[in-house]
């Protein structure tokens, strides 16, 4: 078997597993109960799935110029997905419908209560 054929097979495996992970992210988006759990789906399987597809693509194209572009896309994805998730989590946390009955503990609520208390003391 030639090197080209091996690379093609590895690329095919990467592409298919990446697509499977994207599908898992889609299923998780539909099935998870609230915003925060859905954000997990957007953060992890989506990022890894996309990275795998990019690796598969790079293995098929095999030229320097294209690989650097793909690397850049991958770096952007790794660097920005957590930041986007953080921003949405901050915007959504106290307001949106979060299934508190599914939470074992909520230490952020306690923290926000204390901050509000301190603010009231300053005002008084």
């Amino acid at each position: 078997m030639t090197l080209d054929a091996v690379l093609d097979i590895v690329a095919a495996v990467c592409l298919i597993s990446g697509a499977l992970l994207s599908l898992a992210a889609g299923v998780a988006l539909v099935r998870f109960p609230d915003l925060l759990t859905r954000m997990h789906a957007a953060a992890k399987p989506q990022v890894l799935g996309l990275l795998l597809v990019l690796v598969g693509c790079a293995l098929r194209l095999r030229t320097g110029v294209d690989i650097t572009t793909l690397v850049l896309v991958g770096i952007f994805q790794l660097a920005t997905a957590p930041v986007a998730a953080h921003m949405i989590g901050r915007a959504g946390y106290p307001h949106e419908e979060i299934r508190t009955d599914l939470l074992l503990t909520d230490e952020l609520a306690a923290h926000l209560d204390r901050l509000a208390g301190e603010r009231d003391e300053v005002r008084a």
Binding site: L36, M39, H40, A43, K44, V47, L78, A81, P82, A85, H86, G89, R90, Y93, L108
Partner: peptide, 12 residues
């Protein structure tokens, strides 16, 4: 890094 490791997501 927390957002991408098992189980966790940064909120605040």
């Amino acid at each position: 890094a927390l957002t991408l490791v098992p189980g966790s997501l940064i909120l605040e």
